[in-house]
């Protein structure tokens, strides 16, 4: 028996919005420690890695490790049926063919359940190596989304450059060029509005706008986003998910020919 209950059910709705444009299907791995999902997009340019810790749920029971292959378009349709304030429970038997989503209204007067067929997916399990990043930028998630959206009008790529002076986002194309520079916040009352930079060495890499814009679909999950960059390593874009876990996106840089 598997059962995971989350009072803040809207988190699941937001997670699906954050992955469904990048991935069509994925395996949800459930175990004692919690729920994880790891999958590359079809082009193998980016990787999504989601981790939800069991202790972050209001109720969590997992008698046996199980892997549930789901069509994320279908799962998203189901989660759209949940109200923003609903309590969401995901339930499955051992060796399941189906998974059940139960939505309860806050006052307990409405309960709905949706059963979805699982898929048998033959996906690779990947290990993400630990690394010390040359630059780690933390900034408001909304600001990052805005910059990606604005600069996408100028070209297919965004150059992210990080130095002691700050972080710079640049794009250029047929209509001209654009630069957005952010300095490290000197005096911040609200932590979530801060821009902070930890730098070992300056870096500058080029990334595809299309994928950065997919990643920013996670913006409603978190006030801040963390961008980690190193030579010879993919960009990591991380959004914390309350006190339950995080979603990380990895993106291979574009390479000069």
């Amino acid at each position: 028996m598997f059962e995971a209950r989350l009072a803040k059910g809207a988190i699941f709705k937001k997670i699906l919005e954050a992955v469904k444009d990048l991935l069509t299907e994925a395996s949800w791995d459930c175990g004692d420690m919690g729920i994880t999902l790891q999958a590359m997009d079809n082009a193998h340019v980016s990787l999504v890695s989601l981790n939800l810790r069991s202790d972050g749920f209001d109720k969590y029971r997992c008698d046996r490790n199980l892997t549930m292959g789901m069509n994320l378009g279908s799962m998203s349709k189901i989660l759209k049926c949940a109200g923003n304030d609903d309590i969401v429970t995901i339930r499955a038997q051992d060796n399941p063919d189906t998974v059940t989503f139960v939505f309860e209204s806050e006052n307990g007067e409405k309960q709905s359940d949706y059963e979805m067929k699982l898929m048998s997916l033959d996906l690779e399990h990947l290990q993400i190596p630990e690394t010390e990043y040359a630059c780690v930028v933390k900034m408001p998630a909304g600001e990052f989304a805005r910059i990606c959206r604005d600069l996408s009008q100028f070209g297919d790529s965004i150059v992210i450059s990080c130095s002691k002076q700050g972080v710079k986002f640049s794009a250029s194309g047929d209509i001209g060029s654009a630069n957005v520079k952010l300095a490290q916040s000197s005096n911040v009352d609200k932590e979530e509005e801060a821009v902070t930079i930890e730098m070992q060495e300056p870096v500058s890499f080029t990334y595809a706008c299309r994928y950065l814009n997919f990643f920013t679909k996670a913006t409603p999950l978190s006030a801040q986003v963390k961008l980690s960059m190193s030579p010879e390593y993919p960009l990591m874009v991380e959004y914390a998910i309350d006190d339950i876990g995080q979603i990380r996106y990895f993106l291979a840089p574009k390479i000069e020919d």
Binding site: V45, S46, E124, L126, T206, D257
Partner: peptide, 14 residues
């Protein structure tokens, strides 16, 4: 011109 890199070589298949 730039080419889009892929991730295959970064992650170890378990």
């Amino acid at each position: 011109t730039t080419t889009q890199g892929r991730l295959d070589s970064f992650f170890k298949v378990l």
